[in-house]
């Protein structure tokens, strides 16, 4: 039996720039080698400048994104403020660990700009909530090995939002082109302190 992480396919990557972060994902949804949809975004918005990327088993991607929509809404009602990316990261971690012995088969990525400090923040998780606080980039999904290669080769510190967009796009597109289970277009969010730019990339359709 194949791993639940590799059934539907998909890729996600987040990067830090100068006073900005970027997060991107592919759009493919498959069942093993068969592509079922080319419009399955894996990025979810949880506040003005906070995003969560989810790759892995598609049913868990939907379930977990819905679960966090509920949890973050409850947080906003109770606290009367938006959730900071750091807080979301801890919420994701503890929520995933609650399911330690029957986990969701997802590899989440959090990216955002903290609205009080203005500092960019990214982090990644394993499926049971262990946090990877990275200063450069986070990758996840079936193309993660390829993404490690492209990101490690293309990323440099303190990029402007425009450079960051170009870098994350090239890294993602080149990576998913070498992964049979990812691709079919991509979504990129460039997050600055008080501006979020969403771009759609066509990419190879095969």
């Amino acid at each position: 039996m194949s791993s639940p992480f590799d059934i539907n396919g998909g890729a996600c990557v987040a990067m830090v720039g100068k006073d900005c972060v970027a997060i991107a994902c592919d759009l493919r949804l498959g069942m093993q080698a068969l592509t079922v949809s080319n419009n399955f975004p894996k990025l979810f918005n949880f506040g003005p400048s906070t995003f969560l990327g989810l790759t892995g088993l598609a049913t868990d991607v939907s379930t977990v994104s819905d679960l966090f929509r509920y949890k973050v809404n409850m947080y906003r009602l109770r606290e009367e403020r938006n959730i900071a990316p750091q807080t979301l990261a801890n919420l994701v971690s503890s929520s995933l660990y609650e399911k330690r012995f029957g986990p969701f088969f997802v590899s989440p990525v959090v990216a955002g700009v903290n609205y009080t400090t203005g500092k960019p923040f990214i982090c990644g998780f394993d499926s049971i909530g262990c946090i990877d606080f990275a200063k450069d980039f986070i990758v996840s999904g079936t193309a993660s090995e390829q993404l490690f290669g492209t990101c490690e080769g293309l990323w440099e510190p303190d990029m402007s939002p425009d450079d960051l967009f170009e870098t994350i796009s090239q890294a993602l597109l080149s990576a998913v082109d070498r992964d049979a289970l990812s691709g079919w277009g991509a979504q990129v969010y460039i997050i600055e302190k008080d501006k979020v730019t969403k771009r759609l990339l066509k990419g190879r359709q095969d």
């Binding site: 390829q146 490690e152 090239q170």
Partner: peptide, 11 residues
């Protein structure tokens, strides 16, 4: 490390 290097080379 072919899967890491190859997409970088494509690009």
């Amino acid at each position: 490390a072919a899967s890491l290097i190859m997409p970088f080379l494509d690009n």
